[in-house]
Every structure is written in C-alpha cells, then in structure tokens.
Write a protein that binds this DNA or RNA. Structure first.
Length: 496
RNA sequence: GGGCCGUUAGCUCAGGUGGCAGAGCACCGGACUUUUAAUCCGGGUGUCGCAGGUUCGAAUCCUGCACGGCUCACCA
C-alpha cells in the first residue's frame, strides 16, 4: 500500500516470516481461532485476589481470561508477560516446570502485540506483584506491526488522531477519556428519561439546513436529482414534533457545520437538543443544571480541574443578564445610551464598525470580545437581543430582548436555550429579516423554512428548548484542551 | 486566511557556527527459573516531510510546497 521506511518493513517482514513458520512448521494458524471463553476480565483478579500475600497462591482458583501482550521479559526457563485488557493490566508468569514443551512454544512464537487466551492460578510474587501462574494458554491473534514505545507512549498528535487505535493501545488515559464521554452521554439520557422525555431521530439529510447560523455541507442525491444538506441543528424538526403533540422530545446526534477547524470546533460534532411543551427557559435552565451536575457526579466530583482553573459545578450556577455582564466587565451600560454613542464607544475600543449597528448588536460584540473568555465558572447569560435570536420568544417586558440564555463554562458556550417562538407571524418576520441578511451576503443567516412556519400555524404550545454541546462539555469535564481529544476520529486533512 | 513553531529509525528524542546520520526503547541472534523501563553479550534496520536553490560539500543556510501544533481573525 504505502511507502514504508526500511526498519519498520524489516520488523513486519520478520513477523510475516515468523507467521509463515508458525503455520507451516508448527501447524498453527492464529487467525483461524474464532472463539475464546473469556470468563474473567483482568480486573476480576485484582478485585478478588488482592488479599494474597507475597509468594502466596490460590491453587483452587482458576482464572480464564484474555488480553493483549504488552511486554515480555524472558529469563530462560521462566518468563513474565504484561497482559492488558480493557479493564486492567496484569502480570503473567510462564514457567517451564508448569508448562514443559508448551513453555518452549510460548518462547518461540509469542510476541508483544499478540493476543493470548490464558488459564491460570492467581498468586503474588515475592516482590509483591499480583500475577497469574499460567497453566494453559492459546495464541488468539498475532500482531505483524510493532507497538508504540512502551515508556514514553505515543505523543505525535498527528499519529494519535489519524491512527487512534495506536493512541488507545499506547495511552490508557485516552481510553479513559472516551469511557467518560460514554458515561456523560448515558447520564444525559438518564436525566432526560427520568423527566419522561422521548428520544427521537430527525433527518440528517434534508432539503434545507436550518435552526442555526452556520454554513452547511451539501450532498447530491442521484435519484431525486437534488442537493440535500447535512443538518446544522435539530431544532426545527424537533419543534415540528411538539406541534405533533409529543410533549417532551430529545435527540442526541451529530450536527455538521462547514466552518473552520480549531481546538473548539470540529466540522461534525455531537449535540443534544430537548424540547418540553408548557415549559419556558427557566425550566430549561434548571434542566441544564440538573444534567451538568449529574455529569459531574458521574465523573466523581463537583469540583473538576480545567487547565489552571478549578471549576465548581455545585448548583446553582451564576445567572446574569448580558447587559449586566457587559456593564460589569466593560463599564458600559448599553440600555442607557443611543446607537450613535454605542458605535463611538465601540470604535474607541477597537471594534470594527460599519455604521448602522444597533446598540444591542454592539453590546453582543462587546460580550463576545471582552466578556465571554472571562466566564470561567459555569454562568448562565440571560437576555439575548432579538436580532441575533430569530427562533426565540420575545421578553414581553422588553421586546428588544428574548427569553433566551446561554451557559458558559471555561469561557466557551456549552448550552443555548430559550422559550421557543411560537407566533407564526413573528416567526415569518424574523425569517424575512434573516433573508435580508442572507441577500446582503451573510452566508450564515438562517434559511427561510416555509414548512416550519406552516407547522407553527397549526399551533405550537408554549415550549422551552435547550441545546447542549456534548463535545465541549466533555472537554471541560475531562480536562481536555482540544475538542480532538474527545472525538475518537476527528476531521483531518488527508495526507498528500 | 495571518503570525509563530514543528516534521531526523517503528516510538521518544539528540544532532552550536555547513564536513562520514546518533542515543534509549522496540526489533533480530545468544545467555539467564521471581522479573516488572529485567540484566548481560552481539547486531543499526534511515528518501533527515517533499521539491528546488546556494555550496567543493546541506539534516543544518535560502525559496516554494505538504502535513501537524499553538495563536490571532472568522465562526458556535
């Protein structure tokens, strides 16, 4: 397939020749094996036989297990092997006295990277390491390529992401991150199900990608002869389901956004969106807190480090309006100035201004530039201007604002929620407004989804909706500095 | 897209000012019945990311490109 440098080719060649000899001379083909009754995980030994003292063996206990050979230390007529599975790493002791000619077979044919089925007695060595004295073994599969270095692990980020299996073999802490990710997603489901929320699936491919401000990926459907778009959000379909009288629905799945790649963005990412009829954004705030606290608990603590910070997930999270936060961090009260004054202050602070922005739009610029990255501890930011919230219900007391919040952790948006706009006439106007922006060259403005407006015209009850970015939340809960560290196979540019 | 940094053996990394391509681990051969980064003896297995240029001579200096990382911009 690809060009390989000589030493690696040499190792592979040696292993291939060894495999040939194993098949021909020893009459054994490891790739024919299709079953091994693995009765015990390696962790079973540690959790059940830790009481054994040095040099003590439980001869009545027979462990039947399996795993990958990570290291071999041969000492003539006795050998030690580190066997690893997805629960633990355990030392095996192979002795000539126990295995006789089988011991010679082991010495001759078993290499690091191979898979072994093992039967043996638990014991503790003189030096105090819990081990298995091997009484039977079977070579279950062979590795033809070498393992990454045993002491330093695999550090090259490019190889780690492109060949994640090597990362997972070499770096057990990486395996742990993705177990935690699974636990987080499971926790989401548990909390949502406990509130009677139905899990649904909506289209990934659709004629129109709406529900967020982002550029979509485009795919072509041959039979229909049309372009289909990969979804950028699940929002508009989920709200159709509330119109369809499911009162509580959620979806966990991938969204796709045709934008830049950096430590906080991957073109495909996992989001959870939930919609509850008869609920508002206050309920969504409580739900957000409940989910995130449950996730922190699943990680084992409500205080978790992220880089140099200790993040406190103990509820209640701080709640503050965008107006107040901008006032707090910038000293500007955008409620009590004119549009012209706002633009002047923005220019003074070095923001690029076209000249027709409203003071509230400028306030969001201030928020993005000067406040966001200061919100390290979990903070609900309330009160988003209508013009950047085309799907959210207006605040009846202050119609320039919506009943919307975002949750920030470690300076990044993790959740976005609002009381859903259910006035079809207002929704039509908002889409119209987005259409103008799109025609003015804003490729990320929302598309006009006529069918969605039709659904609203059939009647959407008052509804609270919430979206949580699962990758980012996982980053913060696992102290990962890049989104690529919480996505098993992150998007990479093809090599060459 | 801009700036900075990186790319040398399978892995982790050294290789001032240009002068025979290195170490540890891994791997191969040998010794060894309690080691655990085993030890001891022997073995280097390389398109120095790619393509040009300067030079008697380039891993090293210059230019371009590829891939990656950080960062800024943009963006959820």
């Amino acid at each position: 397939m690809e060009e390989r440098s000589t030493p690696e080719r040499e190792i592979i060649k040696q292993r291939m020749e060894k495999l040939e000899r194993l098949r021909k001379d020893a009459g054994f083909n490891p790739f024919v094996i299709d079953k091994w009754d693995k009765e015990h995980k390696l962790s079973f030994v540690r959790s059940n036989f830790s009481h054994l003292g040095p040099d003590q063996m439980d001869e009545d206990a027979l462990i039947k297990t399996a795993g990958r050979v990570m290291a071999i230390r041969k000492h003539g007529k006795a050998s030690f092997v580190h066997l690893e599975d997805d629960t633990d790493r355990l030392q095996l002791y192979f002795r000539f006295d126990t295995l006789n000619e089988e011991y010679e077979w082991f010495k001759k044919w078993v290499d690091t990277g191979d898979y072994l089925g093992i039967v043996g007695h638990p014991f503790r060595t003189k030096r105090g390491e819990l081990s298995l004295l091997v009484t039977e073994f079977k070579l279950l599969s062979k590795a033809l390529r070498p393992l990454p270095e045993k002491w330093h692990g695999l550090k090259d980020t490019e190889v780690r992401y492109r060949q994640r299996y090597l990362d997972l073999i070499a770096n057990p802490e990486v395996r742990e991150v993705f177990r935690k990710r699974a636990k987080i997603i499971k926790t989401f489901r548990e909390v949502l199900e406990s509130h009677g929320t139905l899990e649904v699936e909506t289209p990934i491919l659709s004629p129109m990608a709406g529900g967020a401000t982002a550029r979509p990926f485009i795919a072509f459907h041959n039979a229909l002869g049309i372009n289909l778009y990969l979804r950028i959000a699940t929002e508009l379909y989920l709200k159709r389901l509330i119109v369809g009288m499911y009162e509580r629905v959620y979806e966990i799945g991938k969204n796709f956004r045709n934008e830049g790649i950096d430590s906080m963005h991957n073109p495909e990412f996992t989001a959870m969106e939930v919609y509850w009829a008869y609920a508002n954004y206050d309920d969504m705030m409580n739900l957000t807190e409940e989910i995130i606290v449950a996730c922190a608990d699943a990680m084992g603590s409500r205080q978790l480090p992220y880089g140099e910070h200790m993040i406190n997930y103990e509820p209640p999270f701080r709640r503050a309006t965008m107006v107040d936060l901008v006032k707090e961090h910038c000293g500007v009260d955008f409620l009590n100035i004119t549009d012209e004054e706002a633009r002047r202050i923005a220019k003074e602070r070095g923001l690029e201004i076209k000249g027709n922005e409203s003071r509230l739009l400028i306030m969001t610029e201030f928020f993005d530039n000067f406040v966001e990255d200061k919100l390290i501890q979990p903070t609900f930011v309330l009160g988003y201007p209508v013009e950047i919230s085309p799907l959210a219900k207006r605040d009846p007391d202050n119609p320039d604002f919506t009943r919307r919040f975002e949750l920030f952790i470690c300076g990044a948006e993790v959740a976005n929620a609002f009381s859903e706009l259910n006035d079809p006439l207002d929704q039509r106007e908002r889409f119209q407004d987005q259409l103008k922006k799109r025609e003015a060259g804003d490729e990320e403005a929302h598309v006009f989804d006529e069918d969605f407006v039709t659904a609203l015209e059939h009647g959407l009850p008052p509804t609270g909706g919430l979206g949580i970015g699962i990758d980012r939340l996982t980053m913060f809960l696992t102290n990962s500095s890049s989104i690529r560290d919480v996505i098993l196979f992150p998007t990479m540019r093809p090599k060459e």
